[in-house]
Design a protein around this nucleic acid. Sequence first.
DNA 1: AATGAATGAGAATTCATTCAT
DNA 2: TATGAATGAATTCTCATTCAT
Lengths: 221, 221, 221, 221
Amino acid sequence: MSESSLSLRRPARAARKPRDLDREAAKKRRSRDKRDRILRAATRVFAKNGFHATRVSEVAKAAGVADGTIYLYFKSKEELLVSLFEDRVSKLLAFMREDLPKRASAPERLRAVIDMQLGLLEGERELAEVITVILRQSTRLMKEFAAPQFLAYLDAIAKIVQEGQAAGDFRQDVAPHIVARAVFGALDGITLTWALGRAEQGALGRAATQLGDMFLRGLAP
Amino acid sequence: MSESSLSLRRPARAARKPRDLDREAAKKRRSRDKRDRILRAATRVFAKNGFHATRVSEVAKAAGVADGTIYLYFKSKEELLVSLFEDRVSKLLAFMREDLPKRASAPERLRAVIDMQLGLLEGERELAEVITVILRQSTRLMKEFAAPQFLAYLDAIAKIVQEGQAAGDFRQDVAPHIVARAVFGALDGITLTWALGRAEQGALGRAATQLGDMFLRGLAP
Amino acid sequence: MSESSLSLRRPARAARKPRDLDREAAKKRRSRDKRDRILRAATRVFAKNGFHATRVSEVAKAAGVADGTIYLYFKSKEELLVSLFEDRVSKLLAFMREDLPKRASAPERLRAVIDMQLGLLEGERELAEVITVILRQSTRLMKEFAAPQFLAYLDAIAKIVQEGQAAGDFRQDVAPHIVARAVFGALDGITLTWALGRAEQGALGRAATQLGDMFLRGLAP
Amino acid sequence: MSESSLSLRRPARAARKPRDLDREAAKKRRSRDKRDRILRAATRVFAKNGFHATRVSEVAKAAGVADGTIYLYFKSKEELLVSLFEDRVSKLLAFMREDLPKRASAPERLRAVIDMQLGLLEGERELAEVITVILRQSTRLMKEFAAPQFLAYLDAIAKIVQEGQAAGDFRQDVAPHIVARAVFGALDGITLTWALGRAEQGALGRAATQLGDMFLRGLAP
DNA sequence: AATGAATGAGAATTCATTCAT
DNA sequence: TATGAATGAATTCTCATTCAT
C-alpha cells in the first residue's frame, strides 16, 4: 500500500508498465490465494458444524482473515457454499465434455461416470461431506441452484443409458431416467456413508469397481 | 364417541363413571387430533420452505393454533422435525421385523425392502421431501438421531445380501455393505427426484419394479 | 351474594336459613383454607426461587391446586406477594396501635418496637426472606405499595424518639428520623443475614436484647 | 492524542511505531468510553424502572448505541448489573485495605467505615438506588455474587468491633457480628430512604456523624 | 485491500392469564 | 368452584453484514 502511494508522486516512466503488470499479477495471485484460503477454511468448518451452525466469524478465524474480508471475496455466506459446489461441478462437467467422448461404448462411458463421481472426492472427505450433506442444508441453494445442475447431470447419465439401449448394449425394459437416478443415488449413498465416517481410505475406489460391475451386469441385455 | 351418546340414555348413576371415562377419552382424542394437526401443518410448511426458513409461527398459523400451543406438544422446533421422521421410521422398522421373516429367500427379501422404502412415501410427496431433503438440514438431527437409525437400516440390508451370498443366491464378489449403501442411495435418489417435482403419480411403483429387477440381475451369481 | 340470588327463586322458609348459613360458613372456611394454602405455598416457593424466577404454575403445584384456581383468590402474581406482606404489616400496625400505648416511657416503647420487629419473623425464616429480600424484587410493589407503609412505620418510630427527647429521656443532638431509619435498617440487616442462612435458632431474640441495649445507651442523654 | 499530533511533524520512519501505539491507545480509550456510557445509562434506567422492568433496548437507547453493542461489552443483562456493583465494591475494599490501617483505634476505624459507606454514594442517588434496591432484584446475583462479598464486608466490620473490645474501647456484652450487621443495616437503611427520595443534599454526611456518635456511645464500655 | 467494531433485524420460547368445560 | 389447555404478547440475544478507519 505504501509502495503504491509512493509511486503516485513520481513521474510516469516507460519502465513502469511491465513492473505494474507483474505487480498486478502478483496481486491477483495473492488475491486468489486468499480466496482459496477462505474456501478451504469454509469447507473445514462447514463439514464440522454444518451450514447453519457455522458463523461467518468462525470461517474468518479459520482462514486467518478478518470477518469483513470474507465479504470482499464472497457476496454472502450462502455464496461461500455455492462456490464450493460450483468448483466441483465445473470439474465434473468439464470431464463429461472432454473425457466421455473418448469412450467408445455406453457401458464404458457409464463406468467412467461412476469412477469419476467417486474419484472426484476421494481423499477429500470434508468436501464430500459438504457436497452430500451440507449442500442440502440451504433450501434456496438446493431448489434454485443445485437442482437445475443436478437435473442436467442426471439427464447426461440418462442419455448414456439411452444410447446403450439403442446400441443393444443395455436391456430395453428399464427407463433411462430411472437408471440415471439410481446410479447417482447409489454413488451419493456411498459417498454419504463414507463422509459420515464409516469407511477407510481407498474405499471409494473399490466401491466404484463393484458398483460398476453390478450396474453393468444389471443392465446387460 | 358413540359410547358417550349411548350413556346419555342410561340412568345417571351408572353413567357416572363411564361418562368420566368418555370425557377422558374424548380429551385424549382431541389432544391427539391437535398434535396431528400440528404435525401435518409442519410437514406442509417444512416441505415448502425448508426447516430453517420456516418460522414456528408459520407452522402455528398453518395448524390453526397459537404459537405457544406448539410447545404444549413438542419441546422445540427441532423436535417437530424429529417426530415426523420417527413416525415413518417406526413403521419401517415394524415392517422389517414383521414382514421380512415371511419371505423365504434373500432375493425376495431384498425386493420387499425396495418395494417398502418407496411404497412408504408414495402419495405423500411432501413427507418424502421432508425426509429426503429437510431432514438433512438439521445437522444435530442428522448426526445424533438420524445417523444411528440410518446405519442400523443399512446393516439390516447388508445382512440380507450376506445371507443371499451364503445361500448361493448372490454373487460373492461384492461387499454386502457396499450393496446396501448403493441400494439405499438408489432408492433415496429416486425419492429425491420425485420429491423435487419431476415425476408423475405411480412413478415410485414402476421404479421399484425396475430397480428390483436391475439389482437382482446385477447380484445374480 | 349467592344466598340472595337463591332466595329469589325459592320460597323463603324459616328452616332454610340456618342451614344455608352453615353451608355458607363452611364454604367460606374452605375458601379461606385454600387461600391460606396458596399463600403458604407462595411463601415457600418465593423464598426459594425469588419472585421473578417463580412461575405461577409452581405455586399452584406446591399448593395442590390448578393454575387457574390461583386467580380465583388473587388478581395477579404480584398480588400474591402483596398479600404476604399485608398480612404481616397489618399485625405490625395492630401491635403499634394496641401495645405501644401501654408502655409508659419512650425507651420502653423503642425497645418494644425492636422486640416486635424481630419477634414477628422468629421461626419463620422463609417469610422473613420474602419480606426482606423478595419484596424488593417487585419494583412497582416497592415504590407504590411498600414504600408508603414503610415510611409510615418509620414516622412512628421517629415519633417515639421525638417524645423521648421531649421527655428528656433521649439526647437532643440526633435527628429523630435518622434514628428511626437507623433502627429499622439495623433490624432489617439482622433479619436479612439471618434469612440468608448464617444464624441459628433464637438468634433473633438475643440480637433484639443487644440491639436494644446498644441503641438505648447510644441515645441516652 | 497530543503525542500523535506531535508525531506528524517528525520524520515518517520514526513516527511509525508511536503512531500505531497511539492508535491502539485511542481505540482502547474509545472502547472504555463506550463501556462507561453504557454503564451510566444502565444506572439511570435501572434506577428508574428496576432491573426486570428494564429492557435491554432501553439501556441501548439511553446509551445511544445499538442493542447488539451492549453485548460486545457485557455478556448479559445481568452482567450489566453486576458490573455496576463490582465497581463500587472494589472501591470499598480498596478503601478498607488502604485507609483503615492508618487509623489508630477501633472507634476511629468504625467511624471511618461509617463515613465511607455513606460517602461512597453521596451525590449519586441513582447508583445508591441501584445498589440498595435494584441489586436485590436479581435473586441469582444476590445469592451467588453479592452475598459472599457482603459477608466478607460484614466480617471486616465485626473484626473492628472485636479489636475494640480487646483493647477495652468497646463494651464486652455485645456480639461483634450482631453489631456489624446492625451497623451495616443502619447505613443501608439511611441510604435506602435517601435513595427513595425523602432527603436533601448533604443529608448523608450529617447522618454519618450522628450515626457515628450514636453507635460509638452505644458501644462505649 | 483489510480490519473488526458496530449495527439492528429477526425468532424461538416462556409464562401470566383466560375461559370453555 | 375448579380445572388446565390454550393463548399470544413480550423480550433477550445472535450473527450476517456494513462501513469508517
